[in-house]
Design a protein around this nucleic acid. Structure first.
Lengths: 142, 142
DNA sequence: CCTTGCCTTGACCTCGGCGTCAAGGATTAC
DNA sequence: GTAATCCTTGACGCCGAGGTCAAGGCAAGG
């Protein structure tokens, strides 16, 4: 099969396949006319790559999986190197999730506090107190 | 104060300040010799920007806060536009966290499965019996 | 005067994963 | 024959938030 068909069957683009090849991830045989030629095993490799990409793995991280498949293993994650990548990724995800949750908490607290402050101002305004400050948007030109 | 001092006091670089200025976020007065001149209020604006950046806000999202401060409000988040950014950010964070947790669960499951498969192979080697069923990676639809 | 250390603008580099031409060759369809 | 599709390589664009030169101006101390 040629590049267009493989791309379509994997739900990606020819550009992407050429890019993977340029990174040494998915080399192609060549037909006499110079066209890239692929078979079903390439489709499996490609699907492995795409699955991991969808999980947010970067290309380099998919390499062990691909090599594992090419080595004849039943699955891309049948090899120790792939498992190591899984574990690193889990740690990375945990760190990231923790950071985001921390940020979420802080931003949530800021919002709550700012809302409370505005409520305080509103109450002040009802009772004859101070004037409400107003936000003026200053347009910026560069 | 000149750009170098402001940068140092805010824990950032002169390049960053010039970049902010180019984006219209932190305009500077100029001394006769052409040097940028800042005062304490600029330091406050800058700190507001940096705080939000540390939270993962992009520059454009900090603009309402900066304009709010420049309008004379006590805090960058005293204005409705800033609160709106907070809320959008919270929603964005919640979505992101959810996505990452989903990915984490899937990757964790893959790892567990792959480890089990490897254990199965090891056991098989010890006790030659029936081959364990092998699971393939869930294909992705894109 | 000369060095040192600020400052100025401008312009290109980084990174990942491709998108998007451009110019031309190969194959197939009619 | 020729149009319509495929394919090839090459090269620039994108995005955000600056980093990193380069070439030169301004001020102050010795």
């Amino acid at each position: 099969m040629r590049i267009g068909e493989l791309a379509e069957r994997a739900g990606t683009t020819t550009r992407t396949l050429r890019y993977y090849e340029s990174r040494g991830l998915l080399p192609a045989r060549r037909a006499v006319n110079g066209y890239r030629t692929y078979d079903e095993s390439d489709l499996r490799l490609l699907r492995q790559i795409r699955t991991l990409q969808d999980f947010g793995f970067d290309l380099e991280e998919t390499r062990p999986f691909v090599e594992c498949l090419r080595a004849g293993h039943p699955a891309g994650d049948s090899c120790p190197a792939s498992l190591a990548v899984y574990r690193r990724k889990l740690a990375e995800l945990d760190g990231l999730i923790g950071d985001l949750q921390s940020v979420r908490a802080q931003v949530g607290a800021q919002l709550a506090q700012a809302e409370a402050a505005r409520a305080g101002l509103a109450a002040e305004a009802e009772v004859p107190g101070g004037p409400e400050p107003r936000c003026e948007l200053t347009p910026h030109t560069n």
